[in-house]
Design a protein around this nucleic acid. Structure first.
Length: 699
RNA sequence: GGGCGAGUAGCUCAACUGGUUAGAGCGUCGGCUUGACGUGCCGAAGGUUAGAGGUUCGAGUCCUCUCUCGCCCACCA
């Protein structure tokens, strides 16, 4: 990387330099201890088993540009890499791997399976971070974090215990979304609604006093668990039914007809069958009317002992048998095909069941208020501001958070159950309890097999990685960037956890960046084959060109329909930059001591434009208008510096060499956050020895 | 069902709080270039800014309605 190399090479080749330059930088990415002003960026930890996609790429390039720019503006930048153990997601990846060997996790058993996931994690868990390096990210590699690090795990246990002591965590038997394949409960946010065609059955329920009423349902099999019927008191058609008794067909149970505002008169016949065990809305109604909860479906989506003659049947088999039975009694009034949305597991796509299960919940009312107020009072800024609305809406209508999972991979909940008494007797404690069970007076404790929702653990990420002795208490952070679908899942939860445990919100600014879509405007997805691998692009164009191409397309308010041509444009720009500096070196040599003392018209013009460009670029970076900032620079450097100013150096010189030097050095610095590798290479070629991001940008 | 966003040159996008002939890049076409540039430079063509109505001296920009697309959220049994 000498001056001669620059002079003699007419084309910049990223592949000769990018990796070497990156390795050179690594030690300098550490925050320096002697600077006072810090700027702390919080990374969104990718899943350990993940591999780089466009979302990570866009998000982290944005952050890297900010990080480098902040460093060059005099800040001590803290940005730590890390990964998330990602409970269900990771477990599913390993299960798929097992499937290839013809095995399920049940064949291995819990312990061996967990061991297997650890092996997988050790073998492949570092890949995603290695891929992050290829993007040129200025992360502090001396401080890698993982959500199952010893210290991290401790934070999670302590948080749970603190919630428990404060009465914010409780255990309850209630219907939850349950995935029959993953064999676990899920939180509301892990449920994905999918459109599906089904049959709506109108079933006649006899009234005790004679006559029939009809009830619409797509799930006749759940009727075995009906414990009431409900109508809306405002529905004039049915008010007179309130208080009357109907007879549940097949089971012959008497059902009281209750009045509840949650019943939608426009749906079906306006009469709702209340099945508290298998419907969340019905459960709410049941609480209000003290109704019994009878579960008829088990966690494998099979009918249980309460289903009488249907016991053991899969719910779909049971459905058709029940419909058959009803038909034979002439109790089906009508059947119609409908399309409606049905909850599926967001991780494996299986249709979910709502079944009652003992789970741990976090009470959300107080915590939601904390998160709400932090944004309302602008202690946390969400940019662009329009994303505040979904954030507020979510917090306003929130239900308690189910934080236990019955999967195997994850952090165990610090709870001990009495082997003899089971559900009736448990102790919340990190260590095995020494006291005796209150019921059986024995000390026969066994740790629960349940693990935490992975988001319970990642909600603590900001202080678990930033607030430790060796990390110099870098809490709170200044900035976090996120895709918008993570706003509730992660951002909101970090905010209330941060305030609850640390008394301060975990960051000041949340930047919600655009989603990378395909050129057709569709979501990029591996399974649909519409994804583009950023690594392929790097191999084809180099990192700087990719960074240019992506940022060129970035605007704050519109999703990005990914187009490859700007990357090509980036490659040309790199070559233009390279040759501009060649010309600069050659010109300097040629001019020697024929320098002019005064400033020419061109000198003055370009200096003025430089100041103006700096101002707009900084303003745009401040507003996360990265695409605009890059365009400002592109135009300035190519159209003004190259096409006009450098051209004016050809022929008899009337310009001042010190101006040329300033323009070329300042341009290099300005370009560095966006195109870090090439600018560093040129910087070395010009004879400088430092990382370019150690230079001051705004003098 | 609710919310948000977008529909501007062939393609991907700009145009700050409404203000002169609506701008870039790529693509197309025509020239030029052996004192940096596998290229570069100069220039041209190309748009009733989705549609309809309204406010205004003036609207891509504000209001209303319609259409199309996308995303997020939602316990419609």
């Amino acid at each position: 990387m000498t001056k001669d190399y620059l002079k003699n090479t007419t084309r910049y080749s990223p592949f000769d330099f990018e990796e070497k330059i990156y390795n050179y930088w690594i030690p300098y990415f550490k925050p320096s201890p002697n600077k006072r002003k810090t700027f702390i960026i919080l990374i969104a930890p990718p899943n350990v088993t993940g591999s780089l996609h466009m979302g990570h790429t866009l998000q982290n390039i944005i952050l890297d540009i900010i990080a480098r720019w902040k460093r060059m503006s005099g800040f001590n930048v803290v940005w730590l890499p890390g990964t998330d153990h990602a409970g269900i997601a990771t477990q599913n990846v390993v299960e798929k791997e097992l499937k290839k060997e013809g095995l399920t996790r049940f064949d291995l058993g819990r312990e061996k399976f967990i061991q297997r996931v650890w092996e997988w994690t050790h073998k492949y868990g570092g890949i995603i971070l290695e891929q992050f390096k290829k993007l040129g990210l200025s992360l502090d590699w001396s401080r890698k974090k993982f959500t199952l690090d010893k210290k991290y795990v401790k934070w999670v246990e302590e948080a749970f215990i603190r919630y428990y002591r404060d009465g914010l965590v409780y255990r309850d038997l209630r219907p939850v979304n349950f995935c029959p394949r993953c064999q676990s409960s899920l939180s509301d946010l892990e449920v994905e609604a999918k459109e599906k065609e089904d049959v709506m059955y109108y079933i006649k329920y006899p009234l005790k006093d004679g006559g029939f009423i009809s009830i619409a349902t797509t799930r006749p099999e759940t009727m075995l668990g009906d414990t009431a019927l409900a109508v809306n008191p405002k529905d004039e058609r049915w008010v007179e039914l309130i208080g009357k008794i109907a007879i549940l067909p097949i089971v012959k149970r008497e059902l009281k007809i209750v009045s509840d505002l949650r019943v939608d008169p426009k749906f079906g016949t306006g009469i709702l069958k209340v099945t508290p065990a298998h419907s969340l809305i019905d459960y709410e109604i049941a609480l209000r009317h003290s109704l019994e909860m009878i579960s008829v479906i088990d966690e494998k989506a099979k009918m249980n002992e309460n289903a009488g003659e249907y016991k053991g049947l899969n719910y779909l088999e049971a459905r058709s048998k029940i419909v058959e039975n009803l038909r034979s009694q002439n109790l089906i009034e009508k059947e119609e095909k409908i399309v409606h949305s049905v909850p599926h597991c967001s991780r494996c796509g299986t249709e979910l069941q709502v079944i009652p299960s003992y789970e741990w919940f976090v009470k959300m009312d107080k915590l939601a208020k904390l998160a709400y107020n932090a944004v309302k009072t602008k202690k946390v800024n969400i940019i662009p501001p329009r994303f505040k609305k979904p954030y507020f809406d979510w917090l306003k209508n929130i239900r308690d958070w189910c934080i236990s999972r019955k999967i195997w991979w994850g952090q165990e909940i610090p709870v001990w159950f009495c082997k003899n008494c089971g559900e009736k007797s448990y102790v919340v404690s990190i260590k095995k309890p020494t006291k005796a069970c209150k019921i059986c007076k024995k000390k026969n404790w066994e740790k629960t097999k349940e693990v935490f929702d992975t988001w319970f653990s990642s909600a603590l990420w900001p202080f678990a990685i930033l607030y430790t002795k060796e990390e110099k208490k870098w809490y709170p952070a200044d900035l976090v960037a996120t895709a918008r679908d993570i706003l509730q899942l992660w951002i909101a939860r970090m905010i209330f956890c941060g305030i609850y445990f640390m008394k301060k919100p975990p960051f000041k600014t949340v930047f919600v960046h655009p989603t990378v879509l395909t050129k057709e405007g569709k979501r990029m997805s591996k399974s649909l084959g519409t994804g583009i691998d950023p690594l392929d692009l790097i191999q084809k164009y180099g990192t700087d060109a990719l960074r240019f191409g992506l940022m060129w397309q970035l605007s704050t308010h519109q999703d990005l329909r990914f187009d490859e041509t700007p990357i090509d444009q980036g490659q040309k720009f790199l070559n233009k930059i390279w040759n501009a500096y060649r010309f600069y070196v050659l010109t300097k040599e040629k001019i020697g001591n024929q320098n002019k003392k005064e400033l020419s018209k061109e000198d003055k013009r370009i200096l003025k434009l430089l100041q103006k460009t700096k101002k707009t670029v900084f303003k745009n970076l401040n507003n996360f208008e990265i695409g605009l900032a890059l365009k400002n620079l592109y135009k300035f450097f190519w159209r003004e510096v190259c096409d006009k100013y450098l051209e004016s150096w050809k022929g008899e010189t009337k310009n001042n060499i010190t101006v040329l030097e300033k323009i070329m050095l300042d341009s290099l610095k300005l370009l560095h956050p966006f195109l870090p590798h090439i600018t560093q290479v040129i910087y070395f070629a010009l004879g400088y020895k430092k990382p370019l991001f150690y230079e001051k940008l705004n003098d």
